[in-house]
């Protein structure tokens, strides 16, 4: 009975307007890479998925989009049941089959090239990664340039994957293929589409 309550509760209270409001923030964040935007926690998923990552998932996932969970998130079976109940999406067997990947612990996640990168004919057929980072500031500053960024934009997320700068550089070289990232903290998101170029920071 407990498990059932965990599965059934915690979805959007107002599906139409919660999804619209969250999507506009995600769209704005994707259009302005590196900008940290506050986003309300409309969903309360089972731990260890955060409320913000759960909100992003409920906004974007449905029956057409298989998802993949990293080890940290897959550890709680109730979480997969919750996602499937509230979005209709099924779990993908491998990262490369996933339209969305939810990552609870980015520091130990598979490298970015393990996910779907799209093809040159269909670069849109790639995985979008929703990463739970500790915080969107206070980490090592990373400076980005590219479409959506006026000049340059610096962001300093904590808890990114090991060797992120090299991986992100490689991801950019695959353009138009590559993955896009939605970084989530306890109350905000920031996006890094594949076009966001890491530029050398002055030390």
């Amino acid at each position: 009975m407990m498990d059932q309550a965990v599965t059934l509760d915690g979805g959007f209270a107002d599906p139409v307007f919660n999804a619209q409001s969250a999507f506009r923030i995600i769209m704005d964040a994707m259009a302005r890479p590196g900008h940290v935007l506050a986003i309300p926690a409309y969903a309360t998923p089972p731990v260890p998925l955060s409320a913000i990552a759960g909100t992003v998932a409920c906004t974007l996932l449905d029956v057409d989009t298989p998802f993949w969970l990293d080890q940290a998130l897959a550890a709680n079976p109730a979480l997969q049941a919750w996602l499937t109940f509230h979005t209709g999406a099924r779990a993908a067997a491998t990262p490369v089959e996933a339209h969305f990947a939810l990552v609870g612990d980015p520091t130990s996640m598979p490298s970015l090239e393990r996910f779907a990168l799209g093809s040159h004919n269909y670069p849109d057929q790639s995985t979008t990664l929703i990463l739970q980072v500790g915080s969107l500031d206070g980490g090592v500053p990373l400076t980005f340039a590219g479409p959506g960024i006026k000049g340059r934009k610096t962001i300093a997320p904590q808890g990114l994957p090991a060797g992120f700068t090299a991986q992100w550089h490689d991801n950019g070289k695959r353009f138009p293929c590559g993955v896009d990232l939605i970084l989530t903290s306890a109350d905000a998101i920031a996006c890094l589409p594949r076009t966001a170029r890491l530029v050398e920071t002055e030390s």
């Binding site: 599906p15 139409v16 999804a19 619209q20 999507f23 995600i26 769209m27 994707m30 259009a31 906004t59 974007l60 996932l61 449905d62 029956v63 057409d64 989009t65 339209h99 670069p123 849109d124 790639s126 979008t128 479409p147 959506g148 353009f175 138009p176 896009d180 589409p193 594949r194 076009t195």
Partner: peptide, 19 residues
């Protein structure tokens, strides 16, 4: 309907990521 909106929203995010 909401599922159509989600499908279009996902397409918009991909379109923004690949200008």
């Amino acid at each position: 309907d909401e599922q159509t909106k989600r499908m279009i929203r996902r397409a918009i995010l991909k379109a923004i990521a690949i200008p």
